[in-house]
């Protein structure tokens, strides 16, 4: 078991911040708050610089200036985008509505047929499975169809959950619970992975214990 301490100062800055954040487990403290403020500021600075170089210059200014005759119309959406800022000025808030109206209106119209296709028709198609009369057919296709139908019935609000209808809705809730159980298990796994990631960082990058 050998350690090989990192000579990169950045790694140690990161280790410092990592430990600062973990100090929160003991209780909320200025060190944690400091780390939090730094991450907010650096994150914002990062986003601003990237936005400036890649979006404003790369995606708007460069095409506009190199090919002005065919792209000059880009000035209109640019003005609309700028109008959004009037949201913060109560007297002129209404100006921002034009940009919002354009994006929300077009976005909704855009989404409508596509969501029907991908979110409804295709999901229905994928559930229209043939039922095979075998153990495999029961365990998969049959259970899926029963689960989807009973789940839909559980979320049906025009009829009270009584009698046969209530029993089917009850089957639905069991399916939902098992589904949530799967999500639960996976979420636990994800959160632990993040912690493992930090442990790996300290063990490998900072202390040089692991050689991968």
């Amino acid at each position: 078991m050998t350690f090989n301490l990192s000579s990169n100062i950045w790694v140690w800055i990161a280790v410092f911040f990592t430990l600062s954040v973990y100090s929160f487990l003991w209780k909320d403290n200025p060190l944690f708050k400091f780390a939090e403020s730094v991450t907010v500021g650096v994150g914002m600075g990062y986003a601003m610089v990237q936005w400036f170089t890649l979006s404003l210059v790369g995606r708007f200014w460069t095409p506009l200036t190199t090919d002005f005759s065919s792209r000059f119309h880009l000035i209109i959406p640019a003005i609309m985008g700028l109008m959004l800022i009037t949201r913060l000025i109560p007297r002129f808030t209404w100006l921002s509505r034009y940009a919002l109206a354009f994006t929300m209106g077009a976005g909704s119209g855009f989404a409508l047929p596509r969501v029907i296709q991908a979110g409804v028709l295709q999901q229905l198609y994928a559930t229209m499975l043939p039922i095979e009369f075998s153990l495999h057919g029961f365990l998969y296709n049959f259970i899926i169809i029963v689960g989807v139908l009973s789940g839909l019935i559980y979320f049906f609000f025009s009829k009270e959950h009584k009698g046969w209808f209530g029993s089917i809705a009850n089957v639905g809730i069991w399916f939902l619970m098992v589904g949530f159980g799967a999500t639960f298990g996976y979420t636990v796994m994800a959160r632990l992975s993040l912690f493992i990631g930090r442990v790996l960082f300290v063990l490998r990058d900072a202390l040089g214990f692991l050689k991968i």
Binding site: G119, Y140, I143, V148, G151, F175
Partner: peptide
């Protein structure tokens, strides 16, 4: 692949 998928699809159809 089976009960979870059924539950998620029922939810997805509703959310859709």
């Amino acid at each position: 692949n089976s009960p979870n998928m059924a539950a998620k699809r029922a939810i997805a159809l509703g959310v859709g």
